[in-house]
Computed example of a mutant assay.
Amino acid sequence: MKPFLIILALVWSTPAFAHGFAGSGIIHPLTGLDHMLAMVAVGAWSAQLGGAALWRVPVAFLFAMLVGGAVGMVGLAVGGMEATIASSVLLLGVAITWARPVALPVALTATLAFGFAHGHAHGAEMPLSISPALYVLGFLLTTAGLHVIGLVGAALIIERGPSGMRLLRGAGGVAAIIGSVMLLA
């Protein structure tokens, strides 16, 4: 059933012009470094946290993204979304670099705020010529895929032991630096 929905979304989607690139809801999360870094970082952080965070953190992001997307689609302006998106890259990078246990409610709260902001940006930039349901399905599927890439990639790196953890923390540091630059730009 899922492959059918993906094919259906690809066939029926028309170009969206998000971040200066044409594409559907499936493409939108891939057209901005801010979105890609944050979404991969959510997966990596969830792998680092382990336990229930492995699935709850990415699912919370997706749920909040859905809500934020709906708010953006109906045209409700919410201030500070671009700063929150840049902050999500910075703070997720810091969390990965810090590599300390974080209480699940704290991780979920942060992830919900970040997911809402990313979803709002996607929803607000949806072209009127696109089916809202297919657009949302597209950006949720791509986001979930980016979460899985971050989660699996981080898990494989962590598995390498101390050198892997240093590598992952270094990648978090790079994300934090990029997030800082985005926030200051």
Rank of each mutant, 00 (worst) to 15 (best):
G145P: 11
S129D: 14
L151H: 10
L168H: 04
A121K: 00
G119F: 12
H118W: 12
S129Y: 01
M165W: 05
T143A: 14
P162Q: 04
H120Y: 13
E125Q: 14
I157L: 14
L141P: 02
Y135K: 06
S131P: 12
M126V: 11
A133Y: 13
R169V: 04
G164K: 07
R169N: 05
M165G: 02
I149P: 01
M126A: 15
A155Y: 10
H120P: 00
A121M: 01
A113F: 08
Y135S: 15
M126K: 15
I149A: 12
R160S: 06
R166K: 05
E159D: 11
H147C: 10
H118I: 12
F139N: 13
F116K: 01
I149W: 10
G145S: 14
G164H: 07
G161S: 03
L151C: 05
G164D: 06
L167R: 03
H147A: 04
S129F: 05
H122M: 08
M126S: 10
L167D: 01
A113S: 07
A155W: 10
A117E: 00
P162Y: 04
H147T: 09
M126Y: 09
H118R: 01
S163L: 04
H118Y: 08
P132V: 15
G123Q: 07
P132D: 13
A113P: 02
G164W: 06
H122Y: 13
H120R: 00
I157Q: 03
V152Q: 06
A124D: 00
A155Q: 06
I149N: 03
V136G: 10
A124L: 00
F139A: 10
R169D: 02
G161N: 05
S129H: 08
F139R: 04
P132A: 15
H147N: 14
L134D: 11
L168F: 04
G119H: 12
A155T: 09
G150E: 09
A117D: 00
I149C: 09
I149T: 08
Y135I: 01
E159M: 04
L168R: 07
F114W: 13
V148L: 13
G150C: 06
I158P: 00
P127M: 15
A124V: 00
G115C: 06
H118Q: 06
